[in-house]
Design a binder for these strands. Structure first.
Lengths: 347, 347
DNA sequence: CTGAAAGCGCTTACAG
DNA sequence: CTGAAAGCGCTTACAG
């Protein structure tokens, strides 16, 4: 590896001038500048970026992004939103993938250390539920943190997301507006109560109460968000259905909704004629299923952009722009074919 | 930011000892060690990892991974394969996403510089077609490069992938074994001839010739690999089909295959009774479509692992383990429901 | 077991 | 416009 020392020797000048020629070419004589460039090319010089980053003083602003599963369908859109604003503000991005098996407190702590040790100025924590007792660690890193697609029990951290309860309420409201009253749900496995997927169940339940709809525990089945889980959960609902007669099902993810549709099909029933299905996510495959899938869409790009803007404000307004609690961004219902209209006479 | 200087002061010892206490605890007295640990905790110390990385000497081995689209469906599996072996060998990974708009030569050159400047010891270049005239740049970086899911025109670089031609040949052969003779293809848009997706068309064509099957240009339609593209391409094949009577279609991606199935459905025909469909990729959604999708699977994990093993060998065997050309890993046909058996009498 | 000192590759006031 | 020198935060022979 060639260094600026080598270039200096080769060009017969000092390392100070080499450094200037490389980074602030306008500060050096044209002729020497060219000697440097020539030597650099000849010696195959690549600047050691780690050294530059190591000097805390003259470093660009940078943000660490921590995400549990980089291949999540929404990651691309989220990241685009983040990097767009980051580029506008000329700030560096450092990505850290939390291996799902390390989703424990320990894993998050490791992730925070990782980015902190790379001297980032702020952190975006995506899809990680942060338990209330995390205060210590959060205080330790001493740089602003923004939550994205998740929230913090104590509300001490700003969180950018859609309102899961509200959007799920809206999904059910939509079904009601189409004449449905016996509405089931395929929900996430009940684990930590504050996770987004859990909130969707709460929204469902609130709507059930609000509209005074019939309900029993047998209206709900649980799954781990994937295709297969939706299939299995639907199978159970169908088994229960002998007596409960659901006409519509709200699934907490499109994957589960699609699994459910396949299950309904295998049972010799039709979507939406026999049972309507509404999903959550707006995966692109939802336009290709038969029927195409009605679903809830989140503005991932916008969520990403807002979180960066917020951190920038905190970082530059050198003061009291802390800001905490939830910042909700607007969700949307995507109407397609998987929900039918029930006329009063029908049921 | 606290530094080891601060700790040293606080604990009343030298920075050398602080450094040792932190990194080689067994080298220091238990008591001083604890003083250091205590001060570190109290001062909220985080080691500046960039500084460590900047010191070329005592650095861990590291690999740069360059990939055009981090949200590609196969990335997770590929990355798992890579990181598994990387962990075994205790080597660091640095990820760089090539923005698709920068897929130009310039973009790749920037990506190579980026990782090179972070002092990686080797590079894995995924899904990037490397044109033959790249010799210069490749020589410049002076560290080993392995291609993954792509290849190099001159064959100067080692490439880890499945044999696209062979696997596509096999897809057609499978259809033939089920009695099909009028076989169409939905292929990638013809751009650079060496891209994997292009090779799939060649494999299709070779099989057509090998089995002496009927063929005309109207057997083939083109698309850009996504759901919609498959739908549109299938529409065209169906329009052509008035006269050509295809009984099966091979799509260069599962997304296009699923789009095609939806199109066939919309045309009032059935898969596989009227037309069989075989895809390429083995997306998980293929188990939930109706019918479930028969397809070709690539061993992404294995491909990733092998590429790392290869680089390790080159890096450590300090010598002539260069190795170039294509290293093919085995593909597999996943049989599901979208291909029917045609009896002789039928056609 | 510990400290003073040299070194990693680079940047930037400071003085010419 | 250029160079000598100090500094960034850290590590590690070398000497005690």
């Amino acid at each position: 590896m060639a260094t600026i020392q080598d270039i200096a020797k080769h060009a017969g000048i000092s390392i100070a001038t080499v450094s200037r020629a490389l980074n602030k070419p306008e500060m050096v004589n044209v002729e020497t500048r060219e000697r440097v460039m020539h030597a650099a090319k000849k010696l195959n010089y690549f600047a050691n970026e780690n050294t530059k980053l190591s000097n805390v003083k003259n470093k660009k602003l940078s943000l660490g992004i921590i995400i549990p599963y980089i291949t999540a369908f929404y990651f691309g859109e989220l990241y685009s939103g983040i990097s767009k604003v980051a580029e506008e503000h000329n700030i560096d991005l450092l990505l850290y993938e939390l291996k799902s098996q390390h989703m424990s407190n320990e894993g998050i702590s490791k992730a925070l250390s990782f980015v902190k040790q790379r001297m980032v100025d702020g952190i975006i924590l995506a899809s990680c539920h942060v338990p209330g007792d995390y205060e210590d660690l959060i205080e330790q890193v001493q740089i602003p943190i923004a939550l994205v697609l998740s929230s913090h029990e104590n509300g001490k951290l700003p969180a950018f997301k859609v309102d899961d309860i509200r959007s799920s309420f809206d999904a059910v409201a939509y079904l009601v507006s189409r004449g449905h009253r016996h509405i089931g749900m395929i929900s996430a496995l009940p684990t930590e109560p504050e996770r987004s997927e859990q909130l969707r169940f709460r929204g469902y339940k609130q709507a059930i109460d609000f509209y005074n709809l019939p309900y029993s525990d047998s209206f709900v089945a649980f799954g781990d968000m994937r295709f297969d889980d939706g299939y299995v959960a639907m199978k159970q609902l169908l088994a229960n259905n002998e007596k409960i007669e659901l006409t519509a099902v709200f699934a907490a993810s499109d994957e589960m909704a699609i699994g459910a549709m396949r299950c309904i099909h295998d049972a010799g029933l039709r979507v939406p004629e026999d049972i309507s299905v509404i999903g959550y996510d707006n995966l692109s495959v939802g336009t290709m299923t038969t029927p195409t899938l009605t679903t809830i869409e989140q503005p991932f790009g916008q969520i990403g952009s807002e979180s960066v803007r917020h951190l920038m404000k905190v970082l530059t307004d050198s003061g009291q722009v802390t800001g905490k609690g939830n910042f909700y961004l607007p969700h949307k219902i995507i109407e397609r074919e998987s929900v039918s209209e029930i006329t009063l006479s029908a049921k």
